[in-house]
């Protein structure tokens, strides 16, 4: 359990660094920004308690916020995603799986994993951009931002999944 927490903390720090130093600096076409740190939340085991999931999402969102000068934005969006993740994951859980599995291409099959990730990431960006554009609401711009960012993040999530050892 302790070593599990240690590994998780290490992953947290590494992903946060990569997110803040590399991915947060890349903006494609002025709309799409990849939030690769979401992979940390996607990959938490199936039976992570709802409370633990919420705390991890909030902390991760806040960390990214502090570095990107958007206090509260990522935290709110990530918490929303953490809240709904287990519900979405339950849809893709089938009988052949061990009791406490790590969501991935091996456990959920590629199709399941991609749809599960898309749903989670989509919810994250919808909340994020609605909050960011709170005062200036352009529906078309919102749609464009959500879609392009979701697809870009999905691309990275898929690539990382291909090269991940523990799938």
């Amino acid at each position: 359990m302790t070593s599990n927490t240690l590994i998780r903390t290490r992953n947290f720090a590494m992903l946060a660094l990569v997110q803040v130093l590399i991915f947060s600096q890349i903006h494609l076409f002025g709309y799409a920004t990849a939030c690769v740190y979401l992979i940390f939340l996607l990959k938490l085991p199936r039976h992570t308690s709802q409370n633990e999931l919420l705390v991890w999402s909030f902390l991760f969102g806040l960390t990214v916020d502090i570095f990107c000068n958007t206090p509260g934005l990522n935290a709110a969006a990530a918490t929303a995603m953490g809240f709904i993740r287990n519900t979405i994951l339950a849809i893709f859980t089938h009988k052949g799986l061990p009791d406490d599995f790590v969501p991935g291409a091996r456990s959920l099959k590629w199709g399941g994993y991609i749809v599960y990730s898309l749903a989670c990431i989509g919810i994250f960006y919808t909340v994020l951009f609605i909050l960011e554009l709170f005062t200036i609401s352009y529906a078309s711009e919102l749609f464009l931002s959500v879609t392009s960012s979701t697809l870009l993040t999905m691309l990275f999530v898929t690539v990382i999944e291909c090269f991940s050892r523990t799938r």
Binding site: N51, L54, F58, G72, L73, A75, A76, T79, A80
Partner: peptide
């Protein structure tokens, strides 16, 4: 917990 954390986020925003 969810409502609390979202509350904190909004206060920050």
């Amino acid at each position: 917990l969810f409502i609390l954390l979202e509350g904190i986020s909004f206060v920050l925003i």
